[in-house]
Amino acid sequence: MDLLHREVRFARRLVALQPREIRLLETLIRNGDTVVTRAMLLETASSFHFDPQINLVETHISGLRSKLALGGLPDAIETVRGIGYRFRTAGAA
C-alpha cells in the first residue's frame, strides 16, 4: 500500500480502490492481527455519524473483498463473527 500515491497493490496487481476503501484497508493493515470493530471502521469510513443499522462498512468490505480477490487465493479480509474484521497476513488461513 502506497499512501503517498494512494495506490494499492495486492499479489503484484494494481487495485483501483475508492478513497473510503483505501482508508478501511489502511486501518485493517495497520492493526495487523488485531480485530477492528465495525464501529471503528465506520469512524474510519466517514467523518459523519451514521445510524449503526446502515450497512456502510459491510458494503465497502464487500467491495474490497471483490477487488482484492484473485483466483484461488483465500479472502484477504477475515470476518470475526460478532466482533469485526481483520486483514489476513501472508500465510494465514
Rank of each mutant, 00 (worst) to 15 (best):
V36T: 07
N31C: 05
G84P: 06
L3P: 11
V8C: 02
I61C: 00
M1R: 04
V57D: 01
Q53Y: 04
L24K: 12
A76M: 04
A39P: 08
E26D: 11
L68F: 07
L64S: 03
L41E: 02
H5P: 09
F87Y: 12
Q18T: 09
V57L: 10
L42E: 03
L24G: 08
P19C: 07
L24D: 00
E7I: 12
Y85R: 03
V15G: 01
T44S: 13
M1H: 14
I83M: 10
Q18M: 13
A90V: 10
G71K: 08
R38Y: 09
L4K: 14
H60S: 02
N55Y: 12
P52S: 13
R65I: 08
N55V: 12
T79K: 10
L56G: 01
E43T: 06
R86P: 02
F87T: 03
Y85W: 04
N31W: 06
L64P: 00
H60R: 14
R88L: 08
R81E: 02
F48I: 09
L56Q: 07
G71M: 05
S66W: 08
K67R: 10
E78M: 10
R30V: 11
R65P: 01
V80Y: 07
L41T: 02
V80T: 06
L56Y: 08
M1T: 05
L41P: 00
E21H: 14
S66Q: 10
R88Y: 02
V15W: 11
I22W: 10
E21R: 08
L68Y: 04
L64D: 10
V57I: 11
M1W: 13
L56T: 02
T27Y: 06
H5Q: 15
A16N: 12
N55E: 14
R30K: 13
N31K: 11
A11D: 15
D75V: 00
F50K: 04
L3I: 13
S46A: 11
S46V: 03
E78S: 06
L3H: 14
E43V: 05
P74F: 02
I83P: 02
A11H: 15
R88T: 00
P52N: 14
F87K: 03
S66M: 08
L70I: 13
G63H: 15
T79H: 09
T27W: 08
I22L: 15
A90R: 11
S66C: 07
H5T: 14
L41C: 03
V15Y: 11
P19M: 07
I54C: 09
R86D: 01
R12G: 11
Q53R: 03
R23D: 02
T59D: 14
L56R: 05
G84Y: 01
G82V: 02
V15I: 09
I83H: 09
